[in-house]
Write a protein that binds this DNA or RNA. Structure first.
Lengths: 223, 223
DNA sequence: GCTCATATGTCCTTCATGTGTCCAAATAAG
DNA sequence: CTTATTTGGACACATGAAGGACATATGAGC
C-alpha cells in the first residue's frame, strides 16, 4: 500500500519538483494549487500526509491546517517563506507537525516527510505491536525478534531493515530506497552495504530467511 | 491502567490538537467545551489530571478550579492567553498546579502534564505498594529495595530510574525518554548521565542486574 | 554559616560490537 | 559461453557503552 501525499502549493515549478521527488521515493502524489480545493481533495483521497504552502490565494496554509485538523490527525508539513518564530508558533498551535522554510531542498522535504510518517506510525502502534511471519514475531516496542520462541538479538540496522521490509511486504525495494529509509539521505557510501546487512539479517532469520527475496538488478522484496 | 485527563477548552481546534497529543502519549482523554459540564464530567470520570482554559463561556477556568479543589486534590493545569502575573497569582491561589500560556506547543503541555503526574503519584502512591522481580522487591512507599531479604539503599535518582524501568518492563526506553521522566524536561546536561546511573544501579542490583539490558544505539530495557 | 558525607554529573580510556568495504566464488541472465 | 550481479567471507574501521576517576552540587548536622 503506497503512502499518499497531498501537495498544496500554488507555484507550479516548485510543485512539480517536489512531486517528482516524492514519486521517486514511492509515494502516490496528489497535487493542487489552492487551499479551498485542497479540502475537497483531502476528503476524496484521505492522504497519509499533507504538505501546505502558507502563502496561497483564497485560503492560506493556516486556514487549511485548521480545517484539516478539525477532521483528522494526519501529519501536516507547512512550507513557509517567512521564518519568524511567530509564524511557527501560530502554525504549531493549529496543529502542524513540521515546518520547512523556503528555499528548501526537495530531498530534505522527502526525508522529513518520511521521518514524520515513521514517528506517526510508531506513536500509534499499540503496546507491543507485533508483526509476524512464519514462526517469527517482531515486537516493535522492544525492538526484538522472536524465532520459534527464542529471542534473537538484532542490531539497530538489522532491525530497521527488517521493519522496513515488513512494512512493504511484497513490494520490491531498491537499494536506493532502502538506503534512504534505513541509513538516511545523507549516507554517502556504497549501495552494497544493503547487501551485507541483508546477508546478516538472513543469517539471523535462519529458517525464515526465505522470506527475503533477491530481485536481481532491482533490489529486495519481503514476502 | 491508563491515565485519564479531562480537557476543558472551548476552541475546537486547540482541543483537538491537544487531545491528539495526549492520546499519542497513551492517555485516555475526555473533552468538553465549557466549565459547567466540566464539573459533571469530573464527578463521572474522576480524572488524574484536569486541563482548563481560563477564558470560557458560562463558567471560567478559575471558577472550575475552585469547584474541583473543593472536591479533590487532583492536579490542575490552566491554559491562559493572559500572561500577567496577576492572573498567575489568582490561579495559584485557587489551587491550580501549573500554568501554560497560549500560544503553546502541545508537546510541552504533555511534558508538563507528565511531570506533574509524576510528582502527584509520588505523593499519592498507595501504602507500601510492592514491585518485585527475581529475588528483589521494591517498596514504593519507603523507596527501598530489598535483595534476598537484605535492604539495599538507593539514591533518589537510582530509585526513580529503577521505578521507571520497572513500570515499562520489556519496553526499550531511550536515554531521551529516561531523561525526560527521571530528570525532567528541563535537564540540559549530557545524555550519558543515564549510563552512569544505570551503571550504579546495576552495581547495587548485584545478581539481579541482568534484568537491565542495554539495547545498543537505542537505550535500556528492563526484562 | 561551615564541614563533611553523599549524591550527581562529566570526562576519558578501554573494550566490545556494529558497520562498511573489498574480493573471490557462486549464481543468474543474456 | 560470457557477462552482470549477488553472495559469503575476511578484514578494517567507526561507534557506542562500560568502567574508573574525578569535580561539583546538595543536604544534613553542627
Amino acid at each position: 500500500m503506497r503512502k499518499k501525499v497531498l501537495l498544496v502549493e500554488d507555484e507550479l515549478r516548485i510543485r512539480e519538483v517536489v512531486a517528482d521527488y516524492f514519486k521517486k521515493d514511492g509515494w502516490e502524489v496528489h497535487e493542487t494549487d489552492n487551499g479551498s480545493s485542497a479540502i475537497d481533495w483531502f476528503d476524496a483521497i484521505y492522504p497519509d500526509l499533507v504538505i501546505l504552502d502558507i502563502m496561497m490565494p483564497k485560503m492560506d496554509g493556516f486556514a487549511v491546517t485548521k480545517e484539516v485538523r478539525a477532521k483528522s490527525g494526519v501529519p501536516i508539513i507547512l512550507l513557509t517563506a517567512k521564518s519568524s518564530d511567530d509564524d511557527k508558533i501560530h502554525g504549531f498551535d493549529l496543529g502542524a507537525d513540521d515546518y520547512v522554510t523556503k528555499p528548501f531542498s526537495p530531498k530534505v522535504l522527502v526525508a522529513r516527510a518520511n521521518s514524520l510518517m515513521k514517528r506517526a506510525t510508531e506513536h500509534y502502534l499499540p503496546n507491543g505491536h507485533m508483526l509476524s511471519f512464519g514462526h517469527a514475531v517482531v515486537n516493535t516496542k522492544s525492538r526484538q525478534l522472536e524465532l520459534d520462541k527464542q529471542q534473537v538479538e538484532l542490531t539497530p540496522k538489522e532491525y530497521d531493515l527488517l521493519l522496513l521490509l515488513l512494512q512493504h511486504k511484497n513490494n520490491v525495494l531498491s537499494r536506493e530506497t532502502i538506503l534512504n529509509h534505513v541509513w538516511g539521505i545523507d549516507f554517502e557510501g556504497d549501495n552494497r552495504v544493503v547487501d551485507t546487512h541483508i546477508k546478516k539479517l538472513r543469517a539471523k532469520l535462519g529458517d525464515e530467511s526465505h522470506h527475503i527475496r533477491t530481485v536481481i538488478g532491482t533490489g529486495y522484496k519481503f514476502e
